[in-house]
């Protein structure tokens, strides 16, 4: 096996890890949060007070 083949296997492996990460995170989020909350975004809503902010910006944890 030459070093380019190792690179190719590494590319496959990283792709699989990233794909699985997104898939598992999506399932985790879907199970943790209420569907109504996840799909609560409305076009034109820009009032920041109504919006849940991420923890690092002082929002809910």
């Amino acid at each position: 096996m030459n070093s380019f083949q190792i690179l190719e296997y590494a590319a496959w492996a990283i792709s699989a890890v990233l794909g699985l990460y997104m898939l598992f995170d999506m399932i985790r989020i879907d199970r943790t949060y209420d569907e109504e909350l996840l799909t609560s975004s409305r076009e034109g809503d820009i009032e920041d007070t109504l919006v849940i902010d991420p923890p690092h910006q002082g929002g809910h944890k």
Binding site: D34, L37, S40, D45, V51
Partner: peptide, 9 residues
Amino acid sequence: TAVHGEKIS
């Protein structure tokens, strides 16, 4: 639980 009035945008 989605608390009344809270949204994610």
